[in-house]
C-alpha cells in the first residue's frame, strides 16, 4: 500500500500476520491455526492518531502487540523510522537491537487497576522505565516523575503514595505518565478509556489530545467504541476477522463508509438521542472464528449486499477514493 503523501510514515505495517497454533493430544500436534492477524497493511504518519477499531476477536489487540513486539509476528514487516532517521524492521530485530527502541514505543493499557504495581509508590511505578533506561540517580528520577505527574494533571506530592489511593481516572493518568517517561514517539493505547466512567472518559480523552499536541506524539489508538475513536482519530482502520476491511480519514469514513461491515458497525451504535432511532437493520449472525473463516469475502455470510461472487472470490484492500481503502468487491459502486 503506497498511500502516503510527501511526509514519510513513522510506522509502516506490511502484510502483518500472527497465527496461533491449535494443538491437540498428548504430543501437542498442531492441527490448525487461529489466524488472529492475517495480512494487515497500514501506515501511521508522524503526529497523527490512527484509530484501530473492531469487535472482540478481530485481531486489533494482537496487531498492536506485534508492533510492540510483546509477541513475535508470524510474518510481514513492521517498518519503523527511528529518532535518528533510520528505518528498521521491528518484526525481525533481535531483542538486543530492540532494546534501545523500547523507549521510543510505549503503551497505555486498558485496565488502570491491573497495570500498576500495587506494592510500588508512584515514584517507582512511573520511574521504573527511567531506571531501566539508565537513570540511576534517585533524585533525578524523582524530579522527572514530578514533572510527568504535573504533565498529566496530578500533583507531584502524590509520588510517595501507592496506586490504591487513586481512582480509576487518576490511575489511568498515572499509566499515561509512565508511558511518557522515556519521551516516546509512538504510543500504542489499547482501549485506554473503556474501563473508565462516562464522566472521567472525557477528561482522559482531552488529556491525550493535549499531550499529543504538546509533545508531538503519534498514537495508535485501539478501541471498540466508535464514538470515542471518531473523536480522537485522524484516520480510522476497521478490522474484521484478522483483516483490515476499511481504512480512511475519519470524516470520509463516517460520511460515506465504503465497506458494509463498517456501515453496519456504525448503525449498531445506539444514538444518545431518543429522537434519533437507531438500531435498524441489525446485523444478523455472528463473527466467524478466525480458525475457520468463511470462503471468499469473510463478511459475506452476514452481508446484506452479498452476491454469488462474494462467496468464492477473495477480496483485497484497494483504494476507492484518495486515501480511502476498502476490501469490498463493490466499494465505490454501491452505497452501504
Amino acid at each position: 500500500m503506497n498511500t502516503e503523501t510527501a511526509s514519510s510514515p513513522l510506522l509502516e505495517v506490511r502484510g502483518l500476520q500472527k497465527f496461533f497454533p491449535i494443538t491437540r493430544g498428548f504430543l501437542q500436534r498442531t492441527v490448525g491455526h487461529v489466524r488472529a492477524v492475517d495480512g494487515v497493511n497500514f501506515t501511521v504518519n508522524e503526529g497523527e492518531t490512527l484509530g484501530l477499531v473492531g469487535e472482540s476477536g478481530c485481531g486489533k489487540t494482537t496487531a498492536s502487540r506485534c508492533i510492540l513486539r510483546a509477541i513475535d509476528p508470524t510474518g510481514g514487516s513492521i517498518l519503523y523510522r527511528t529518532r535518528s532517521g533510520k528505518v528498521v524492521d521491528l518484526a525481525t530485530l533481535s531483542q538486543a537491537d530492540l532494546l534501545p527502541l523500547r523507549a521510543e514505543i510505549q503503551m497505555i493499557f486498558q485496565d488502570p487497576f491491573g497495570s500498576l504495581n500495587p506494592r510500588m509508590t508512584l515514584l517507582d511505578n512511573v520511574g521504573e522505565p527511567l531506571l531501566v533506561n539508565g537513570m540511576k540517580n534517585r533524585r533525578e528520577r524523582a524530579d522527572r516523575v514530578a514533572e510527568l505527574l504535573r504533565l498529566v494533571g496530578l500533583r507531584p506530592e502524590f509520588m510517595h503514595r501507592f496506586p490504591h489511593a487513586f481512582s480509576g481516572g487518576q490511575r489511568q493518568r498515572i499509566g499515561i505518565a509512565r508511558a511518557l517517561a522515556t519521551n516516546p514517539r509512538l504510543v500504542v493505547a489499547d482501549e485506554p478509556v473503556s474501563a473508565l466512567d462516562v464522566s472521567i472518559q472525557a477528561q482522559v480523552l482531552n488529556l491525550l489530545l493535549e499531550l499529543q499536541a504538546r509533545l508531538k506524539l503519534t498514537f495508535l489508538f485501539v478501541a471498540h467504541d466508535l464514538s470515542v475513536v471518531r473523536h480522537i482519530s485522524d484516520r480510522i482502520a476497521v478490522m474484521y476477522v484478522g483483516q483490515l476491511v476499511e481504512l480512511a480519514p475519519t470524516d470520509a469514513i463516517f460520511r460515506q463508509p465504503q465497506h458494509p461491515y463498517t456501515a453496519a458497525l456504525m448503525r449498531a451504535v445506539p444514538a444518545a438521542d431518543p429522537r434519533v432511532k437507531s438500531g435498524d437493520g441489525v446485523l444478523g449472525g455472528e463473527v466467524p472464528s478466525p480458525a475457520a473463516p468463511p470462503s471468499g469475502c469473510y463478511f459475506h455470510p452476514r452481508c446484506r449486499h452479498a452476491q454469488a461472487r462474494c462467496k468464492v472470490e477473495a477480496t483485497a484492500l484497494r483504494e476507492v477514493a484518495p486515501g480511502h481503502f476498502s476490501r469490498c468487491h463493490f466499494a465505490g459502486e454501491m452505497v452501504f
Binding site: 481512582s167 487518576q170 462516562v198 464522566s199 472518559q201 482531552n206 480522537i232 463516517f254 456504525m266 444518545a272
Partner: peptide, 20 residues
C-alpha cells in the same frame, strides 16, 4: 461530556471536573 457520532472531532470535550 460524551463524544457523539455527529459532533466536531479532535476538540476538547466539556468535562465534569474532579473525580467520583
Amino acid at each position: 461530556s460524551i463524544p457523539s457520532l455527529y459532533g466536531q472531532t479532535r476538540v476538547a470535550l466539556p468535562v465534569i471536573s474532579g473525580a467520583l
